[in-house]
Amino acid sequence: MSMRTKIYLILPVLVFALLAVFFYKGLSLNPEELPSPLIGQQAPQFDLVPPKGADAGFKTADLHKGKVSLVNAFASWCVPCHAEHPLLMELQRETDIPIYGINVKDKPEDAERFLTQNGNPYNGVGADLDGRVSIDWGVYKYPETYIVDGNGKVLYRIIGQITRKTIEDIILPMAEKYNGQAAQS
């Protein structure tokens, strides 16, 4: 067999291998999890009053207090938000990570019922009545949770409900890492 025939024989295998790599990478992405252009950027500017049933509102300045915090977009009409809520309560109880809420397009009485029945884990929660603030954050699927560093820079986005696994694998290590960096500088 000449050198040349050998190349022709190997070529399809190489092409296949290349395609396999592309498909392996492409098909293992979750098409429902879109990258957020906000990562590495400053959080959007807003100032929201609290919904009925909460005392403290939520504004951009809350994210500049020097500690890693969570921003959770939720609503009473969002079923997974109900499922996720006990974990937020637990985080509030057992860690010192501040949690802020954006209550999206809820009727005041629905927001109130949600917070009184499920508890209020939020250090501050804003009523985003027309949904504009959540659009500024680029929220498209509820719930969504953002991890923000102590200077208002967005670090990470969790799409859909947080789980024990995301808390242990992502939230806690990130809080530790970025709070530690802030302490050093």
Binding site: L34, P35, P37
Partner: peptide
């Protein structure tokens, strides 16, 4: 829109 939701 791109600033909020990316190229997507």
């Amino acid at each position: 829109m791109q600033a909020r939701y990316g190229d997507w």
